[in-house]
Write a protein that binds this DNA or RNA. Structure first.
Lengths: 333, 333
DNA sequence: TTGTATGCGTTATCAC
DNA sequence: GTGATAACGCATACAA
């Protein structure tokens, strides 16, 4: 590999000059610039990003920490982050946290040891305090899908409460009044908020909340099945079911079918997220869209602004949108 | 950030000694080692990976180039590669090629400019020559899901021909003799191989190949729909349909349903890949499993061996497996 | 505008 | 076993 010094020698200039044309400085004679560029060509010179990093103490890399890689949700997030950042010639180092505190902390240490200029994180286990500490004392961060007090401008997230509200409101508008709910784990913020929205919609419609129509899952497909069976066993009839994400909705749907129910006539089911498979299930799943791609883009933009001196427009709170498909239907009184 | 020099000063030794304990060299006095380690503790010292890279000309990073990020297939691949590599304290830099030659080349240049020690690639557009050139003159690579002549040991892939064979054989065993086929794009190697397997199964069973029962798609969901409609319009009856991937199978299924067909009784459909949504569609999709997770792991292992001096077991050719679900059924004569 | 000298934080090659 | 000293490839303050 050719170095800047060899280029300088061949072009008959000093290495400072080479460095200048390399960094697009205007203060360099056109003649010399041409010579240097030709020398670069001939030597097939490529700057060493490592050496540059050592000199500038910047790596042009941002660490990304997500819960999983093999899910449509995080796939979209990654895709958005990667392409936004790469447009700005930054790159992405990926790690996985598995929703586990130790793993998440490990990943953060790993990324910091790699001298990332910033971190984009989607974490569940890690505390707000920990996040604030990282941002204050270690490296700037952006948090996806979570509100951290004191870090508002660095957090991009969905209005989960409103999403929960929309889902239930939709069922109410269809005439349902006995509405069951399979929520996410109560220790998860987004799950709590979606549930709160659900309850607000019920309250506004004058429908009393019933513990019997409630089941707490952990966002897994299996929980949809377990949840539906449990709810059914309580002998309190319902004609519609809200699920806190699409996986559980899908689990509930297969379970319902296995039980001989005729969907959506016997039971309206609504999900949350609009995962890729939402329109693969049968009947196609009505759900609430989580605009994760845009959120990833905004998170990346925040970093671009905060760390790399750009000034892009960023939006931090996203509005969920109802996607009507065929898994919900009018309640026939 | 504390440097190695400050640690040396505090411990009252030279920086060579610090460097030695840092790298676990045995040739250092226990007393000094203790002093140094304490000094590191007190200063909360973290070695700079950048400086180390400059000195060793290794970055402990491997570049990964995949076609997309937001697909279950690549999600699994990434997950496998990341976790395998991180166990060995290497990290992963991700880029996306979008099945487009220019983008793929760009991504490779980008990764190389980042001084990756090696590349793991899943590319479609790039030529074999180009791949060989990268490996020979630039940086060691491993190729996923593709056979490159001369690079055999660096290629880990599925036996696509056998996969295609298995799918069709399964339908034949169910008694079907009129079997339509929606293949992938003929410019894609894996598509050609799957098709070859399909034809071999037909031939072995004495079923003549018919151009009328063949449609070439591009692996998109929409192609499943287009394909089925086209095939149906040709007035040559068939009772089973082979699709070269799950997306097209899913598209064909919804199309069939929209056309009023009763699945799987009116038409048996089989897919390929066993994507996550394969068991979400209704009826649950019979398909051929593509063990992408293991393939990713093996690809990472190959790099670990070739570049980082490890000696892990690697397997390069993977056997597809038939996953029987409910979308295929006996042909009633 | 151009060149010189120095630093970035390690590893590696020598002597001692 | 230990400690100077020179790379590694680039950026940058400063001098010319």
């Amino acid at each position: 590999m050719a170095t800047i010094y060899q280029v300088a020698e061949r072009a008959g200039v000093s290495l400072s000059t080479v460095s200048r044309v390399l960094n697009g400085r205007k203060t360099v004679n056109e003649n010399l610039r041409a010579k240097v560029e030709q020398a670069m060509q001939e030597l097939n010179y490529r700057p060493s990003s490592v050496a540059r990093s050592l000199a500038t103490s910047r790596t042009d890399s941002v660490g990304v920490l997500v819960s999983e890689l093999n899910s449509p949700f995080f796939g979209d997030l990654m895709q958005a982050v990667e392409s936004t950042l790469r447009e700005a010639d930054k790159h992405v180092i990926i790690t996985v946290g598995h929703n586990n505190l130790e793993t998440e902390k490990d990943a953060v240490e790993f990324l910091i040891s790699r001298n990332c200029d910033a971190l984009i994180m989607h974490v569940e286990a890690m505390s707000d305090d920990y996040l604030r500490d990282i941002n204050a004392n270690r490296v700037p961060i952006s948090v996806v899908n979570r509100q951290v007090e004191g870090l508002e401008s660095a957090c991009v997230c969905l209005d989960n409460e409103r999403g929960g509200y929309l889902a239930t409101q939709h069922l109410i508008e269809l005439g349902h009044t006995n509405i069951a709910c399979i929520s996410g784990p109560s220790k998860a913020r987004d799950a709590r908020l979606r549930l709160a929205g659900h309850r607000r919609a019920l309250a506004e419609a004058g429908i009393p909340w019933s513990e019997q129509l409630y089941y707490e899952g952990r966002y897994q497909e299996e929980d949809g099945k377990q949840g539906l069976q449990t709810l059914l066993s309580r002998n309190k009839p319902f004609t519609a079911l809200v699920c806190a994400n699409d996986w559980m909705a899908s689990g509930a749907m297969s379970c319902a079918r296995d039980l001989g129910m005729n969907l959506p006539y016997d039971l309206s089911i609504i999900g949350f997220d609009d995962a890729v498979f939402a329109h693969h299930v049968y009947p196609r799943l009505t759900t609430v869209k989580n605009p994760i791609y845009q959120m990833g883009e905004m998170s990346a933009r925040h970093i671009l602004n905060a760390v790399y001196g750009q000034s892009l427009a960023v939006k931090t709170l996203f509005d969920p949108k109802l996607i009507m498909r065929e898994s919900t239907i009018f309640h026939k009184a």
